[in-house]
Amino acid sequence: MRHWLPNALSYQLVWIAAVGGAARGWWWAGPVAFVLFAAWQLPLSRHRRADVLLCVGAMAVGFVVDSIWAGTGLMRFASPVPSTQFAPLWIVALWAGFALTLNHSLAALKPRLLLGTLLGACGGPLAYAIAERAWDAVDLGARPGPALLALAVAWSLVTPLLLVAARRLAPLPGTPR
């Protein structure tokens, strides 16, 4: 936990690179930023194995969740590499970057699942709304309400799920798995 602020700021840089890059057609900017974040964070981590497993798991979950949005037309993503029917690589990189915060800047949420649920329900839709309004990296449609509601539900489920996985893979001292 000693690197919580640099971890949080580094994830924000990944988010900006991914979203800003996607808006400009640079689908690769997010994955590159994530690799740089991981190359910095993993050597510092006391929970390298847990962090890697969380990244892989979050990438899988994120690919499924955002592919549902893309496949159903609930939202469209800028720079949709590899396909408009699937989650783009840049957003999958964001999921991996988010996973790298769970044992670091967001570690205090591991025993506080209700707070994590609220963070997911609010923060997930907010991030997508900002990606749409400020960057044009996401299109939530003419009526964004259904997309934002779906995002709130999905993130309110996924965030505590990932926190439970983080807690089991790398428990905080003195907390149960």
Rank of each mutant, 00 (worst) to 15 (best):
P160T: 14
L151V: 05
L114V: 12
V164M: 11
L140P: 00
L106M: 15
P111M: 07
A152M: 05
P88C: 03
A93D: 04
P146C: 03
D136F: 07
R143K: 06
A121E: 02
V92P: 11
T159Q: 11
P111L: 11
A134H: 03
W135I: 04
P160N: 14
L157E: 11
V153M: 04
L114Y: 04
L118N: 02
G116Q: 12
V92W: 06
L94A: 02
G145S: 10
F98I: 08
A99V: 00
L94C: 08
H104G: 02
V164I: 15
A147P: 05
T101M: 11
S156M: 08
T84Q: 00
G123C: 09
A108K: 15
A152W: 01
L151K: 01
G116P: 15
L114S: 09
P146R: 08
L157T: 11
L151M: 14
Y128W: 15
A147F: 10
S83W: 05
V164L: 09
S105F: 15
T84F: 05
A150Y: 08
I91Y: 00
P144R: 00
R112K: 15
T101F: 07
L113R: 09
A150T: 10
W90R: 02
A121L: 00
H104L: 04
C122L: 11
L119K: 12
G124C: 08
S105G: 12
G116E: 09
P160S: 14
L100N: 10
F98A: 13
L106W: 06
L148Q: 03
G124F: 06
A150S: 14
L89C: 10
L94S: 05
L100Y: 08
G120T: 14
L115T: 15
T159Y: 12
A147T: 11
V92N: 11
P125S: 01
L162Q: 10
A121I: 01
P125E: 01
L119I: 14
A107E: 10
